[in-house]
Simulated scan of single mutants.
Amino acid sequence: MSALKLTQIGNSVGVILPKEMLAKMNLGKGDTVYLSEAASGGYLLSPYDADFARQMEAARRVMKKRRNVLRELAK
Rank of each mutant, 00 (worst) to 15 (best):
D49Q: 03
N26C: 12
M1F: 00
K64A: 15
G10P: 02
A3C: 04
L44M: 11
D49V: 05
P47C: 13
S46R: 09
V33D: 02
G41L: 11
E20T: 06
Q8C: 14
K5Y: 02
Q55T: 05
R61N: 14
N26W: 07
K29I: 15
S12P: 07
Q55H: 08
F52I: 05
K64E: 09
V13T: 02
G10W: 07
R54Y: 06
G30M: 04
A23L: 12
S12I: 01
K19Y: 12
M56R: 13
T32F: 07
S40D: 14
A59S: 10
M25L: 13
F52D: 15
A50T: 12
E72C: 09
V33N: 00
K24Y: 03
V69C: 04
N11K: 15
N11E: 07
R61C: 03
M56A: 11
G41A: 10
P47M: 07
L45N: 03
S36Y: 13
A53D: 10
E57M: 05
V69W: 06
L27P: 00
V62P: 05
Q55G: 05
A59H: 06
Y34R: 03
Q8I: 15
E37C: 10
R60V: 10
L6S: 09
Q55P: 00
D51P: 00
T32M: 09
P18G: 09
R71A: 15
L27R: 00
R66N: 04
L44G: 08
M1C: 12
R67K: 15
V62N: 03
M25T: 03
M1A: 14
S40N: 15
V62T: 09
G41Q: 07
L27N: 00
E72G: 12
Y48G: 01
G10Y: 10
Q55F: 13
S40T: 14
M25Q: 03
Y43L: 11
A38K: 14
S46P: 02
Q8W: 06
G41W: 01
L4I: 04
M63W: 10
M25P: 03
I9D: 09
L27A: 04
N68E: 14
Y48T: 08
A53P: 01
A23F: 12
D31N: 10
S36I: 06
G42H: 10
K19D: 05
R66T: 04
G42L: 11
F52V: 10
V15C: 05
K24F: 02
L73E: 08
K65D: 09
L70D: 02
Y43D: 09
A59R: 11
I9V: 15
P47N: 06
L17Y: 00
L27I: 14
G14E: 02
Y34G: 11
G14K: 01
S36D: 14
Y48D: 04
M1L: 13
T32H: 08
N68G: 15
P18L: 10
A3Q: 10
D49K: 05
Q8D: 03
G41K: 02
V33L: 03
D51H: 15
S46Q: 04
S2H: 13
Q8A: 14
K5S: 08
Y43H: 09
S12F: 08
A38W: 05
A23N: 13
Y48M: 10
R67Q: 12
L4A: 06
K5I: 04
R60Y: 07
M21G: 00
M1V: 13
L70A: 02
G42V: 05
G28Q: 12
G28D: 15
